[in-house]
Computed example of a mutant assay.
Amino acid sequence: MNRSIWIGGLVAILGVGGWLWQGGRDAVPPAPAPASAWTWQLPAGFPEPVVPADNPMTEAGFQLGRRLFYDKRLSGNGTQACASCHMQRLAFTDGRALPIGSTGEVGTRSAMSIANVAYYPTLTWANPSQITLEIQAVVPMFVDNLAVELGINDENKADVLARFRADEDYRRRFAAVFPGQTEPINFENIVRAIATFERGVISGNSRYDQARAGKLSLSEREERGRALFFSDKARCSECHGGYNFSDQTYDVTTRDVPRPFHNTGLYNVDGKGAYPDDNPGLIGVLPRPENMGRFRTVSLRNIALTAPYMHDGSIASLEAVLDFYASHGRNVTHGAWKGDGRRNPLKDPIIDKIRLDARDKADLIAFLKTLTDESFIADPRYGDPFGD
């Protein structure tokens, strides 16, 4: 079954924006979150993120979501948490080419960073229907038609809720965040709390940011890389621009929401532009020929921490990524997916305009490393509240 159709059906059942199934007895619409102080502490140049009216930011909600994000009891078999594939020290990625779910199944796409995820108008690699964190959070919890992640299903969903309902601390926290409900510990509220935490995970204090603020100076090589990054020679900023270094970025100031997806020439299996059958990109959701091989542009913030790269983790290092772009695509010379991506007819034309020599690539690597936010990956506010 088409994954987007399955998700759409699940969202309809759950009733996002008007929840119907809560995994419990009481199908009661949620009460508004209690009034509590929430002030965005945003980096310079970062506008406020868009926040759904029916899931406002609160400190209590953020802290509840943080606990749930790190709690392995949220998986069907109690072995994994959201944080199992989104580790703070790796800018909330997992260091693997492909993630491994709670039942040992291997996923089909690389685990994406949740840093600044509030600023994305679409979520995941190639599904424009996942436009809010509330919708997206449902997928790792319940979807198993491609690979099991947290593995909650009809057989174990009652047990999952029972784990949290038996915990007095969780009962107190859920009651405070979702007052007036007969049974506030339900999947609707779990999803809302996790989305609140993820929306508040903000990174914008890298050496690059500090240099822009006049607090330090970049090295000569880093500065050359910065200039090159924004130049017509490298063309990096055309897809990785703005305060979040991505062309899929929106906030409260955005009028026209950008949702571009790109084919970079990573594959060309049949000589006509085809990508691997099990990972074809946007065409899997929007079945038009031109959508073959198109994926979302990731942010380059903390990029030095998030290897391996690309949607399938098939490029191991930043150096190899720049070699790939400098070659205008990838020539796969053996194996099932053999083909010359450099000649992919569906490739974004901008790829062929990139001009990089060895020194350019070294300078760009130096600059990209300035985008690492050391304070972010060590900030206890985003860390494991259980101390594991």
Rank of each mutant, 00 (worst) to 15 (best):
S113P: 11
P140W: 05
Q80E: 09
P52Q: 12
N145W: 12
P140H: 03
D54M: 09
F69S: 05
G104V: 02
H86M: 09
D54Y: 14
G76T: 07
D94M: 06
I152S: 14
D94A: 11
M57C: 12
Y120R: 15
F92H: 12
M112D: 01
G107L: 07
L133K: 03
R67H: 15
A111V: 08
A97D: 07
I152E: 05
N55S: 09
A97I: 00
R96H: 15
E149T: 06
C82R: 01
G65M: 04
T108C: 00
N55C: 15
A118V: 08
A83N: 05
G104E: 03
R73N: 06
L98Y: 02
A111T: 13
W125N: 07
G78P: 00
M87P: 00
G65I: 05
A81R: 00
V51G: 07
A91G: 09
S113Y: 00
D94I: 00
T108L: 11
S110M: 10
F142R: 03
M57L: 11
T124Q: 12
M57N: 01
A81V: 01
A60G: 15
G107C: 11
S84C: 01
F142A: 11
L64W: 03
N127D: 15
G101M: 07
C85I: 08
V148H: 11
I100P: 04
T122W: 07
A91H: 01
V51W: 08
Q80S: 07
V50K: 13
K72C: 04
Q80G: 03
Q136R: 03
L150T: 03
N55K: 04
C85L: 10
F142D: 06
V51I: 12
T79R: 12
N77Y: 05
T124M: 14
G95F: 01
A147R: 05
